[in-house]
Each structure stands twice: as structure tokens, then as C-alpha cells.
Measured scan of single mutants.
Amino acid sequence: TELRLDINGREIKVDGADKETLKELLKLAEKNNDEKAIRIIRHLLER
């Protein structure tokens, strides 16, 4: 399955993203107070 998050109005594919990319996405999600995106990205970073 493909995991996509809508961050800042942009749909971004997050599964398969490297750790650096995920960290950047996490910063974006935190800036937007997007709890769902934050939770998902943190979960991916823990893998």
C-alpha cells in the first residue's frame, strides 16, 4: 500500500521516503499542527 499525506495542500508520498525526508515532512506537519500527519511520520521514523 502507498501512504500519502496531504501536507500544506500538497499530497506527499511518505512510505519509502528516507529519514531526512521524513524529518523535513515532520517539521512541515508540526508547523501546520497536523496531528494525524505528525503521528504517522513519527511512527515511520521509529521503524
Rank of each mutant, 00 (worst) to 15 (best):
T1N: 14
T1W: 14
T1D: 15
E2L: 10
E2T: 06
E2P: 05
L3G: 10
L3S: 08
L3H: 14
L3E: 13
R4N: 11
R4M: 14
L5N: 03
D6R: 15
D6H: 15
D6E: 15
I7D: 03
I7A: 02
I7F: 12
N8P: 01
N8C: 08
N8M: 09
N8H: 02
G9E: 03
G9C: 03
G9F: 03
R10P: 05
R10G: 08
E11T: 11
E11P: 06
I12T: 04
I12N: 02
I12L: 05
I12V: 12
I12A: 02
K13C: 04
V14I: 08
V14F: 06
V14L: 07
V14G: 02
V14A: 04
V14N: 01
V14S: 02
D15M: 07
D15A: 06
D15P: 03
D15C: 05
D15G: 06
D15V: 05
D15K: 05
G16Y: 11
A17C: 05
A17M: 08
D18V: 03
D18P: 03
D18Y: 03
D18C: 04
D18T: 06
K19C: 04
K19Y: 08
E20N: 07
T21I: 09
T21A: 13
T21L: 09
L22H: 00
L22K: 00
K23F: 10
K23R: 13
K23Q: 10
K23A: 09
K23T: 07
E24G: 10
E24L: 14
E24D: 08
E24R: 15
E24Q: 13
L25E: 01
L25I: 06
L25N: 00
L26P: 00
L26K: 02
L26G: 00
K27V: 09
K27A: 10
K27T: 07
K27Y: 13
L28E: 08
L28A: 05
L28I: 09
L28R: 04
L28S: 04
L28C: 03
A29K: 00
A29W: 02
A29Y: 04
A29Q: 00
A29P: 00
E30W: 13
K31M: 12
K31Q: 09
K31W: 13
K31L: 12
K31N: 09
K31V: 12
N32E: 13
N33L: 08
N33Q: 08
N33H: 09
D34V: 04
E35F: 13
E35N: 08
E35P: 07
E35S: 10
K36V: 10
K36D: 09
A37V: 05
A37Q: 02
I38N: 01
I38G: 04
I38A: 11
R39T: 09
I40F: 13
I40S: 04
I41A: 01
I41V: 04
I41D: 00
I41G: 00
R42A: 05
H43W: 15
H43T: 12
H43S: 10
H43R: 14
H43F: 15
H43Y: 15
L44A: 10
L44W: 15
L44I: 09
L44R: 04
L44H: 08
L45M: 05
L45H: 00
L45C: 02
E46Q: 13
E46I: 13
R47P: 11
R47L: 12
R47V: 11
R47N: 10
